[in-house]
Design a protein around this nucleic acid. Structure first.
Lengths: 189, 189
DNA sequence: GTAAAATCTAAACAAATGTTATCGTTTTTA
DNA sequence: TAAAAACGATAACATTTGTTTAGATTTTAC
């Protein structure tokens, strides 16, 4: 688990073993049960998670109380209610485990320590932010330029195991359509 | 113009005057006519723009040739086909001036120079990427949790001058609806 | 292991949104 | 300045998508 965490960091920046050991000493591992929340709206997020095992979804709840699946995250990814984390504001998302999970928790203090003391600390933050900007920008682009059906087919080709790990109504929610409608789209293909 | 550019940078990081002068010597100003493109799809973007005057829209063209307005950008903002710029890949957006524009052009070389030589260069890149991640994340969240009508009303309250500067059909495109539908929504309010 | 809950498909119907066409007005262009 | 083009509102109609309900199957919980 810590090896994979280390490898994920070293894919983005160069870092000395001493730097990483100091950083790791400020992080810790944690497990979550199925359906347990890693982060809740209203609370200022204090942690970024690295997923060693399991899958979660990010949920936003609208003014009518309807839940929308905004995002899925799985092994070897960093995830958080990152906007609120950055702005130091009350969270807007629920991070919900969809399987039993094992994660590395990076508390805010560890991250700030990295920015201040690691040679490429800011570069790490830049790379993570750039990565997620590219990801979000791509999503915005796709919602404009592709139909729900096309996005469903993309999703299947990029992440074929999704059906084994996530119920279909959550996929429909992620696509911004109703479960009934997704069922129809699958049929007509 | 260069003063505003400087102020925009200093809002994000601390920087010495000498650093900024060297950086500025690698940038240049440019004007664009109404409807002129600042960036075109297919070409690898080499520049980030700082808008001193004017307004532009970012357009994506889908497989049927329909244009979708993805974004508006105006005075004191940084703008680019940033995903493609970061990935060094052929652009996916058209950046189109909607008024005569004055911009500061930051070529890739200037930006890389900043990352390598300015004390807070990576921090600047981190702040810009974080800012745009927050912006995009907020948009993704809103498309899930708010109706087109609600997003239209938000837009009006945040940027009331939009109607004076942008034709309504582009606003409809930005909202992901047809001009006819937007006209209906306005009526029923 | 069994009852309860969750899940997916399907059909009928309702509501939301898109399409096309027209008209009057404003803006652009020659 | 006059003709052409762009723009926005509106109406009629078509299409897409959502809602509700039911039933069969699978998963979960006690």
């Amino acid at each position: 688990m810590w090896d994979r965490f280390k490898a994920a960091i070293l894919e983005l920046i160069k870092a000395e073993d001493e730097e990483l050991e100091e950083l790791f000493s400020k992080c810790y591992s944690q497990t979550f049960q199925k359906y347990e929340p890693l982060s809740l709206p209203g609370k200022i997020p204090q942690d970024v998670f690295f997923i060693a095992k399991g899958i979660l979804r990010v949920i936003v709840t609208d003014s009518k109380g309807t839940e929308h699946t905004v995002h899925f995250a799985t092994e070897n990814q960093f995830v958080a209610d990152y906007s609120s984390f950055l702005l130091n504001q009350p969270g807007i998302y629920t991070l919900q485990a969809l399987e039993p999970m094992e994660v590395v928790v990076m508390p805010r203090k560890a991250i700030n320590w990295g920015y201040e003391h690691m040679k490429e600390g800011d570069k790490f933050g830049r790379k993570v932010a750039e990565f997620y900007f590219v990801y979000q920008d791509n999503r915005v682009k796709n919602t404009y330029s592709r139909t729900a059906k096309e996005r469903y087919e993309m999703m299947e080709s990029i992440f074929p195991q999704i059906h084994q790990r996530v119920p279909q109504h959550m996929i429909a929610s992620y696509l911004g359509i109703t479960p009934v409608h997704l069922s129809r789209l699958k049929k007509e293909r």
